[in-house]
């Protein structure tokens, strides 16, 4: 389980306008690039220090590649991070206000309490 790394992906992509567009248009390429080039960057170190051990499990990588927010919820990704990034990518494809957010909720209807654990 690398919930932390899923969250790190969602966090770093959401906060970069160029990466939001790149992930929307090319999810497989963006996830592969990010895992190779960015996954181990220590965000709190300004000089590019890096870790050596962070990588996705296959199911996590595929959920990100598939823009599969239902699967990300199931895997315990932080729901605020997932929601915020997916609104940024896909709200624009819907005509009615909040239509995407409501569809998002509907697609999660099969989950009941307790929800998947989000602790990292």
């Amino acid at each position: 389980m690398s919930k932390y790394l899923i969250d790190k992906f969602l966090f770093t992509v959401d906060r970069d306008p160029e990466l939001v567009e790149r992930y929307r248009e090319d999810p497989r390429g963006t996830v592969a690039w990010w895992e190779a080039e960015r996954a181990n960057t220590i965000l709190g170190c300004h000089s590019g220090e890096a870790s050596t051990w962070l990588k996705f499990e296959d199911a996590e990588r595929e959920a990100l590649v598939g823009h599969d927010y239902v699967r990300l919820f199931e895997l315990g990704a932080h729901p605020f991070l997932t929601l915020t990034l997916f609104i940024a990518m896909f709200e624009r494809d819907h005509d009615e206000p909040l239509a995407f957010q409501k569809e998002y909720g509907r697609r999660l209807q099969h989950f009941s309490l307790p929800y998947p654990d989000i602790a990292t």
């Binding site: 919820f73 932080h78 991070l81 929601l83 909720g105 989950f111 929800y115």
Partner: peptide
């Protein structure tokens, strides 16, 4: 409040 879950935006 629910965010990113099945009960959001009701």
């Amino acid at each position: 409040l629910e965010l990113g879950g099945p009960r959001q935006f009701g």
